[in-house]
Amino acid sequence: MLTVDFDRLGLRPGERVLDLGCGAGRHAFEMYRRGADVIAFDQDADELAGVRDLFVAMSEAGEVPVGAEADVKEGDALALPFADGEFDRVVAAEILEHVPDDLTAIRELVRVTRPGGTVALTVPRWFPEAVNWMLSKDYHDVEGGHIRIYTDAELITKAESAGLVLEGRGYAHGLHAPYWWIKCAVGVTNDDHPLAKAYHRLLVWEIMKQPKALQYAAKVLDPLIGKSLVLYLRKPHVTGVG
C-alpha cells in the first residue's frame, strides 16, 4: 500500500534514494523494484532486519533490475549519517508526526538531498486525524505515537522554511480513513469487533485484488477524506537557507 506517487517524485533507475523512517519497507521495496539504489533508514533494528531480508529475497527472485542496489542503515533522523547532497530523492512517509523536533528532521533530510533533487513528505491529514484523536485517546497517546496533527499549511511552511520548494500535493488512502474511525470508536485494539473485521476484509480485498469499483471509490474519496497528505517538493540549486 503505497502513499507516494513515484512518477510525481521523478524517480528514475540508477538514482540514489533514501527512505527515511522506512518502517517495514513498503516504499523502499517499490523504489528498489524501479531500479533505484536504495537506503532504507530507521531506528528500529528489528524492522531493518526484516527489510534487509526482503531486499535479498527480491534480488534472488529477479524482481529488481540488474545493477540496482539496496541496503539498510540504523540511526537517528535528527543526525543523519550521510553526506550533504548524497541522495537524488528522499521519502519521509508517516514519520514526522512521531518526531518531537520535526524542524531538525526536515532540515536534515534537506541537507542530504542534492540540489535539484526531490522530496516526498507524507503525514496523516488534519481532518481524518482530528476525528481519530477526538474518538480515542489510545489511538495516539502511546509510546512512540503521534504527537501532532499537521495542517497542510503548517507542513508546507516548515518544508519551505528549510529550503524546499513545493511542486505539488496529493491525498491518499480515502478508503482507510473510515476504518480508523471505526477502530477508534470501538477500541483501537478491538480487532474482533464485527464492524472492524468487516471493513478490514474490504481493505484487504482492495489491496490484494484492486477491484475497479474500489479503485473508483478511492479516486473519489482521496481528495475528500484521504487519510494521508503527500507533499512533493524540490530542493533548488540555491536553497536560500541561512
Results as ranks from 00 to 15, higher is better:
18 L>E: 10
19 D>C: 10
21 G>H: 10
21 G>R: 08
22 C>K: 10
22 C>H: 07
23 G>C: 06
24 A>M: 09
25 G>T: 12
26 R>V: 15
27 H>W: 11
28 A>N: 04
31 M>W: 06
33 R>D: 11
35 G>C: 05
35 G>N: 08
35 G>T: 10
35 G>S: 05
38 V>Y: 04
39 I>Q: 02
40 A>K: 05
40 A>I: 11
42 D>A: 12
44 D>N: 15
49 A>L: 11
52 R>L: 14
55 F>H: 06
56 V>D: 13
57 A>W: 01
58 M>F: 12
60 E>W: 04
61 A>N: 12
64 V>D: 01
67 G>K: 04
67 G>I: 03
68 A>H: 02
68 A>G: 04
71 D>L: 12
74 E>F: 00
75 G>P: 08
76 D>C: 01
76 D>E: 02
78 L>T: 02
79 A>F: 00
80 L>E: 01
81 P>G: 06
81 P>T: 07
81 P>L: 01
81 P>R: 07
82 F>K: 01
82 F>L: 02
83 A>H: 00
85 G>I: 01
86 E>V: 05
88 D>W: 03
89 R>H: 11
92 A>P: 00
93 A>D: 12
93 A>L: 05
93 A>N: 15
97 E>Y: 08
97 E>T: 14
99 V>N: 03
99 V>H: 03
101 D>K: 01
104 T>F: 00
